[in-house]
Design a protein around this nucleic acid. Structure first.
Length: 489
RNA sequence: GGCGGCGUAGCCAAGUGGCUAAGGCAGCGGUCUGCAAAACCGUUAUUCACCAGUUCAAAUCUGGUCGCCGCCUCCA
């Protein structure tokens, strides 16, 4: 099976066929560092984390580049507001970004270039464009000349006439065409500036990605990614700059992911309806956020809500509980004992690898892949439930193999990375702290309830049980005695 | 106004021409239990916004209608 994925440029699912056999070169637009990251940024990082991880699982070598835009109008503005320098502000929020990524368990890309560390490359690229007649200087600014670039609009499916007709931007009289965009901006006093042939200034928004992708991945590379909102103008302009400079080469295909919405509206800073990554993680387990993100296909809008996060948490608990139960099975079974597992129990486990990969090969369909993981866990729970005290060795082997597979495939999405016992202990500690109750107190109440039950004082026994339940402590009466567990919410 | 996407059970969400429309959450019935809970079993869409068409066959393709969303300005 080959991996197929939706390519924005062709508007179709295309087979993965890297320029260099077995080696995928990927460039993703990272953040502009001027504020804390929100759930939308988390989705971006998680989507590409999953894609890279899956490609590697499938045996590809991946060179993953994700940049930081650390000089830009928004950074300058915010720095002024906060009485700091753009350098310090960007540095601070790059640090905060790393903290968030670590909390989410997102592996760092291979290369993380910053715009400010590539000014010579940027200037060289602009110079090439000027020399080729694709750019022109006005005062201390340099603009890209869209009229000279025939393919302008091809990525986003627009043309210049439409764009100009619908333009809402105020026209800068100095531009030859209203759609011309800045490659270099001359700086005003007090703004960060680098020397250039056009005077002191800074790069325009799009040019850094063209310069950095070229430096680390070459003229032509396999996949360029980012959020859907970057298709126009950011990626369209990158195409113009890069293809204009190289004479043809640039990203061979494009992956764009959908937004995170809140009450079905795009989460954005201007609407003020955003939630930061750390606000979400203060409430939910990082893997719950991952499960939430991956339960929807990456191109579909994803609506964030407390209910959806609770649901994701419940699903994650289910998987961890299943793994914990299997881990507690007897080490050795009855050799040669008649296995209880029927076809219905075995198939979801035995075919998990094939089904998982089939789903993921089809445009990284994590939602479907997760369905297969849950199906396998359900089958294993079913089998486990009916095992005798001394189960057949074949049944134990099936369960252990299934648990390993579930964990291995979930790991590709960054899920089930913790030991199930640790996961439950952490959750237990969190809930006990929130409820202000200790294990000793719970044990004491269980003892008191046991006494009441022995006297058939059901009213008192139920009262204790309900009191604990109100504090999110669930009692389980088993033949071996009463155990307890915390509830997520 | 231009361009693009979406509308599948109470909710979330796969499926994009043909086996019984995945999976999760919630609900209901059952096993278990003193009663529960947990777990498991069973069950919950003759139907995929609506209308018309293409086809032996459509949730899946085509046209239209309605509704929602995004991009066109900084945005993951």
């Amino acid at each position: 099976m080959t991996i197929r994925y939706y390519d924005t440029k062709s508007g179709d699912k295309i087979p993965l066929s890297p320029l260099e056999e077995g080696h995928v070169r990927l460039y993703v637009c990272g953040i502009t560092a001027y504020d804390f990251c929100h759930i939308g940024h988390a989705r971006s990082a998680l989507v590409f984390d999953m894609i890279v991880s899956y490609l590697r699982h499938r045996g590809y070598r991946v060179t993953y580049v994700r940049n930081f835009t650390d000089i830009d109008d928004k950074i300058i503005k915010r720095a002024q507001e906060q009485n700091t320098t753009p350098e310090k502000l960007a540095k601070r929020f790059i640090g905060e970004f790393y903290t968030d990524m670590e909390l989410l368990g997102v592996a760092p890309p291979d290369i993380e270039p910053k715009a400010t560390e590539h000014i010579p490359e940027i200037i060289a690229l602009i110079r090439t464009l000027v020399d080729k007649g694709l750019a022109y200087a006005v005062d201390h600014d340099v603009y890209f000349r869209v009229d000279r670039f025939p393919g302008y609009g091809s990525l986003s499916g627009r043309n210049l006439e439409e764009l100009q007709a619908g333009a809402r931007i105020s026209v800068d009289e100095r531009k030859e065409n209203p759609m011309d965009f800045a490659l270099w901006k001359g700086s005003k006093p007090g703004e960060p500036a680098w020397d250039s042939p056009w005077g002191p200034g800074r790069p325009g928004w799009h040019i850094e990605c063209s310069a950095m992708s070229h430096k680390y991945l070459g003229d032509t590379f396999d996949i360029h990614g980012g959020g859907k909102d970057l298709v126009f103008p950011h990626h369209e302009n990158e195409v113009a700059q890069s293809v204009g400079a190289t004479g043809g080469g640039f990203a061979r295909s494009w992956i764009h992911h959908g937004f995170v919405t809140i009450r079905d509206e795009k989460m954005s800073k201007s609407l003020g309806n955003f939630l930061t990554i750390r606000e979400a993680l203060a409430k939910y387990h990082p893997e719950a956020l991952r499960l939430f993100v991956y339960s929807t296909h990456y191109r579909t809008p994803l609506d964030y809500s407390e209910a959806n996060m609770r649901e994701a948490t419940a699903g994650l608990d289910r998987l961890y509980d299943g793994l914990a139960e299997i881990a507690q099975l007897p080490a050795a079974g009855a050799e040669g004992g008649a296995p209880l597992a029927g076809k219905k129990d075995r198939e979801p486990v035995e075919f998990l690898a094939a089904r998982f990969e089939e789903a993921m090969d089809n445009d990284f369909n994590t939602a479907q892949a997760l369905g297969h993981l849950f199906e396998a866990m359900k089958a294993m729970n079913r089998l486990r439930q009916k095992l005798p005290a001394r189960p057949a060795a074949a049944d134990l082997a099936l369960l252990r193999r299934g648990a390993d597979d579930v964990r291995r495939f979930a790991n590709i999405m960054g899920l089930l990375r913790e030991d199930p016992v640790t996961y439950n202990q952490e959750k237990r500690a969190k809930v006990l702290a929130e409820e202000g109750i200790g294990a000793a107190e719970i044990e004491r109440l269980i003892g008191e309830r046991l006494a009441a039950r022995n006297e058939k004082n059901w009213a008192r026994a139920d009262e204790i049980r309900n009191e604990l339940l109100a504090r999110r402590i669930e009692l389980h009466d088993t033949p071996a005695g009463t155990t307890w567990k915390v509830k997520a919410d």
